[in-house]
Write a protein that binds this DNA or RNA. Structure first.
Length: 291
DNA sequence: GCGTCCAGGTCTACC
DNA sequence: GGTAGACCTGGACGC
């Protein structure tokens, strides 16, 4: 079964699926050769594998079995952020040499998951560890707790599935270390209805207040909250981690360390879009000459 | 193969 | 509000 999801003229499939490291974390599967992105979706019948690829004027999704077309299309729009307009950012970026590439390439849509819960769990997995450990933790969560389809492909577990496991499981099986208690608490809160991360997508709160709400989740600090806010479509935080700082030092500060305040000042001109500005600035080299 | 050191964000206790 | 130390893992390094 195949479905077609139309996209706007300001959308680049190539630049969206490789916009940040999420493509490297299951249940995403990037095929560099074909330029396609796989994902294990879920509908009322359970997991279903979908292969997304650019097609004329849209995205075509090849599914491993007949599935709910509206549910899969909604998820694809969410994952690829097809309903989000970056025109205000492009308007700002067009005047800046280091960001003009993003305007030309239609870059800047940051790949995300179909649920805020999945993005939140993955974000916690990125804190205080190497990327290989992040990959290992997410892989273990999906393989050991995610529901599987008939071919053995596994979807990301929902909060109820994650709440079944205890801290020892996260420590010994997921290798989450001190984060183990955070996952138990988060999963139980969401499964029990005491926390609703999906509501953050439509929250009326100012970003600063929403950030405070997100930081109430154990294991989420400034970096993690601002990273998640970017995935919610709010770019006024820089989400500085060691990689972004090092990139800034190399590109704009002659390789020397500097306070975060200097980085913030550098991108201050982009106002509410500064988080996206620094990300595009630092990832320009990812796409080579084929921008 | 083993031991040691280090990087990576967040939490808690303390000032 | 700011700071120090603990948390835990995988990888790098030296032996």
């Amino acid at each position: 079964m195949k479905i077609f999801v139309p996209t706007s003229r300001s959308f680049s499939f190539r630049h969206t699926i490789r916009s940040h490291g999420w493509y490297d974390l299951p249940p995403f599967v990037l095929d560099d050769t074909s330029g396609t992105l796989g994902y294990v979706f879920s509908d009322e019948k359970g997991p279903v594998f979908g292969q997304m690829e650019a097609a004329g004027g849209g995205v075509q999704v090849g599914l491993s079995r007949p599935a709910s077309e509206s549910k899969i299309a909604d998820d694809v729009r969410r994952i690829l952020r097809l309903d989000e307009s970056l025109s205000a950012f492009y308007h700002l970026a067009a005047d800046h040499q280091t960001l003009y590439w993003a305007v030309q390439a239609k870059a800047g849509r940051l790949l995300r998951s179909p649920t805020v819960f999945e993005d939140l769990v993955k974000t916690i997995c990125t804190t205080n560890c190497s990327w290989s450990l992040t990959r290992s933790m997410v892989k273990n969560i999906v393989e050991k707790l995610g529901p599987s389809d008939l071919t053995g492909r596994r979807a990301f577990p929902d909060a109820a599935a994650m709440a079944v496991a205890d801290a020892d499981f996260y420590r010994n099986e997921v290798r989450a270390g001190y984060r183990s208690h955070y996952f138990v608490e988060l999963a139980e809160s969401v499964a029990g209805g005491r926390l609703d991360p999906e509501s953050w997508l439509v929250s009326d709160l100012p970003t600063a207040d929403l950030k405070k709400e997100i930081k109430k989740v154990k294991g989420v600090g400034d970096y993690a909250a601002e990273n998640l806010l970017k995935l919610l479509g709010r770019y006024d935080g820089l989400a500085l981690d060691s990689w972004l700082r090092a990139g800034f030092y190399a590109k704009h500060n002659r390789g020397k360390k500097c306070p975060d305040t200097k980085i913030a000042k550098h991108y201050g001109r982009f106002g509410d879009w500064k988080g996206l500005a620094i990300w595009c600035d630092m990832t320009e080299g990812w796409f080579g000459s084929g921008k």
